[in-house]
């Protein structure tokens, strides 16, 4: 069973533009016939620059937006079916960009309990889930803190715990690190990878940081509402020129490899990490 499957998914919206006192309506296509499928337990990164439609796609998985064309299934549940909305939101939790604007309660544990409380779960079970979720994001000692006293990275981990307490199969993270400092980014990414590895939770990470996409199982690149590239990180990032055309960067080492190749140095194009680069360069030296 596919975790998430999008078939010919399109989303149109009408934007009103006011110019010289005349309002005109413009039809804009945020998503054009997007086909994406995510297996259970996979770690998928969706890349795209600002306004590419990647966040619009993320909101479809959580049934926050309803497709205007095509279909999206979460665990074979059609997101257009209004009766399934709560099941879909429980199965595919969502973490947003701004850590401040997604925490509801004044105490960490109360906030984590918010999701299960909405699902109508018994209070002793909620207590257990909250403790487990806090443990999973390594924030147990902060249970009774107030969110405004936490750092950005810690707040994002609380937001993740809040989703975990709903026992989802899949977590969609919409640029979770965009507002964080490097330490916070690392904390969040480590947490997300650990959840994927240890709990088998499917992760869909929407991002524009290439470094975060490197460790994914599969990468989709969205540009102007269209999936333009997809494959393993190695396959995707070896298309340096294409990526630059979509307004995206490649990881720094991949860029170096690309420049070296352009100078005629025989080095693999799909280098993603410093270690790989070191290996490739050493090999090159021994052949000379």
């Amino acid at each position: 069973m596919k975790m998430v499957r999008a078939q010919q998914l399109s989303y149109e919206y009408i934007k009103t533009v006011e110019k010289d006192g005349v309002t005109t309506e413009q039809k804009l296509q945020a998503l054009k016939n997007v086909n994406i499928s995510v297996e259970k337990g996979e770690f998928v990164a969706v890349l795209g620059h600002n306004g590419s439609g990647k966040s619009t796609f993320a909101k479809h998985i959580n049934a926050l937006l309803c497709p205007t064309g095509g279909t999206l299934w979460v665990k074979e549940m059609d997101t257009k079916n209004e009766e399934l909305v709560w099941d879909i939101r429980q199965s595919a939790g969502m973490v947003f960009q701004n850590p401040d604007n997604q925490l509801v309660a004044t105490v960490v544990e109360e906030d984590i309990a918010f999701g299960p409380e909405n699902l109508g779960i018994e209070s002793s079970e909620i207590r257990k889930r909250v403790d487990d979720a806090l443990e999973q994001v390594r924030m147990t000692e902060f249970a009774t803190f107030t969110p405004s006293k936490l750092s950005g990275g810690q707040k994002q981990r609380i937001a993740i715990a809040g989703v975990l307490a709903m026992k989802p199969d899949c977590i969609v993270l919409d640029e979770p690190t965009a507002m964080l400092d490097p330490i916070g980014r690392r904390e969040v990414m480590e947490t997300v990878h650990r959840l994927n590895r240890e709990e088998g939770i499917t992760i869909i990470l929407i991002t524009h940081y290439m470094d975060e996409a490197v460790r994914a199982d599969r990468v989709y690149v969205i540009d102007d509402g269209d999936v333009v590239l997809n494959g393993t990180p190695k396959e995707v990032f070896s298309n340096v020129e294409a990526l630059k055309g979509y307004g995206l960067d490649v990881p720094q080492v991949t860029e170096v490899a690309y420049l070296l190749r352009r100078e005629g140095i025989p080095i693999p194009a799909d280098i993603l990490t410093v270690e790989e680069m070191v290996g490739a360069l050493c090999q090159l030296r021994s052949t000379i």
Partner: peptide, 26 residues
């Protein structure tokens, strides 16, 4: 803007008012 984002985040966490809602602390 915060209010709108918070509303979306609350909806994403299955908030649908007080009906059938339970509480952790009884």
């Amino acid at each position: 803007r915060r209010a709108e984002e918070l509303a979306t985040a609350m909806e994403a966490r299955c908030y649908h008012g007080g009906e059938n809602r339970t509480r952790m602390h009884v």
